[in-house]
Design a protein around this nucleic acid. Structure first.
Lengths: 240, 240
DNA sequence: TTCTACACGTGATAC
DNA sequence: TGTATCACGTGTAGA
């Protein structure tokens, strides 16, 4: 059994040299990494359990090395070619990316959302409703407006929709004045592809009054759904 | 010489068991990893070259394992606890982050530039100004507003800022009417933490007129910088 | 020289 | 059962 190990000795010495060479030319030829065959190289010897184990172990080592190498390739911060250093640099790089992402995300949400708190029952609603809408009508486009796509909910105090004539409505809306409330309202209106003829926004002490004179391009049925924590405007466009 | 290896045998069997236990509780106790001392544990034997080598090798292995472990901790996609899989997952995760970053970056610049060519001095401006803002004044918050955070740029046709009295301005703005233009304008205004007393938005054929009566909470100097492809409003808040 | 990092074969362990 | 992963000690090559 241990004879196999001795017989392989010279073969693997040359192979080791080749691998050592590979170690210094990493990043160039990763793809053409052929793993070792489990058949014996001496041409007909019986493959014992030990030799299989050796080959398996070789493949395992090579796989790990190749991957460490590929890891090295995707990490820009190069310090040393050392295995442990590769992993260390990768960790630091991932942490750096995490921080970067977090800072960007935090900056965006901070700017958009201000300092208010997140409403817990919000995510559920946000996920459920669009599905039911899409499944009901085929030619209903993305007519689902969600003020809560980001930022915080709008507290609607009063809402009325007045029918003026075909395709024309007047929407009057009073809501709490919070951060980005105006922007969110406008976002909702514009996402519905309504034509806003004129809109007036007036700010009271802590409330906001918005009156919009809107015209829709097709005959629609406007349905305003008001939650205490958010405003959703759903337009059912009739299929023609 | 090989007696040392045999003497350590049991010690390392228990240690290996402990490490195997660690394998199932990774991510909890990474910090308290003490490396092996190079002194002999049998209390007085001469430290031969071989034993030193053994200890060094042990430390090297442990270091690599610990780092692979730490790498595992920072990668969210968990598939297998295997060493090679850890590295593989890390590679895929880094590639994922790269793609994500690239797509976000590309999206932002693409949306900012619209269909026009990318303005070369833009990135410089975008990166430089907030830094200079923060470094110059201490109490200056995130007063840098960017309408082009998503969606399409605003083509500003006319812009005027009229000083009414201290803390009060009238901003009149005419711009092209595109998707989400109103929302973006409101977003900019609100992100500046200005108090909008009254705003009126009127829609012409393809243009949009917005007149806002705003009040700022502190004495500021309003600087509106208008690009042909985007609108940036920068408020220099004076430190008090 | 010593020190460091490595690949190797081997036995053990878990599935 | 075999198959896969692992830690170990050892020899070696370069600094």
């Amino acid at each position: 059994m241990e004879n196999f190990g001795e017989e392989y000795k010279h073969y693997w010495e040359t192979s080791m040299f080749f691998q050592t060479q590979e170690l210094h030319s990493w990043g160039l030829n990763e793809a053409l990494s052929g793993y070792y065959d489990s058949s014996s190289p001496d041409g007909g010897a019986s493959s014992s359990v030990a030799s299989k184990n050796i080959v398996s172990e070789r493949n395992r080592r090579k796989k790990l090395n190749d991957r460490l190498f590929a890891l090295r390739a995707v990490v820009p911060n190069i310090s040393k070619m050392d295995k442990a250093s590769i992993v260390k640099d990768a960790i630091e790089y991932i942490e750096h990316l995490h921080e970067q992402e977090k800072s960007i995300q935090g900056e965006i949400t901070e700017l958009e959302a201000g300092k208010q708190k997140h409403h817990p029952s919000y995510d559920h609603f946000q996920k459920e409703l669009p599905v039911s809408l899409r499944s009901k009508k085929k030619r209903t486009e993305h007519l689902f407006a969600d003020v809560s796509s980001r930022n915080f909910p709008i507290q609607v105090i009063e809402l009325s929709v007045a029918y003026v004539r075909e395709k024309t409505f007047v929407v009057s809306l009073t809501c709490s004045k919070r951060r980005d409330t105006i922007a969110k309202l406008c976002e909702v209106f514009e996402s519905l592809q309504l034509k806003i003829i004129s809109a007036n926004i007036t700010s009271f002490s802590s409330t906001l009054l918005k009156t919009a004179f809107i015209e829709v391009s097709l005959p629609v049925a406007l349905i305003f759904i008001v939650y205490t924590t958010s405003l959703r405007i759903i337009v059912f466009r009739l299929t023609d």
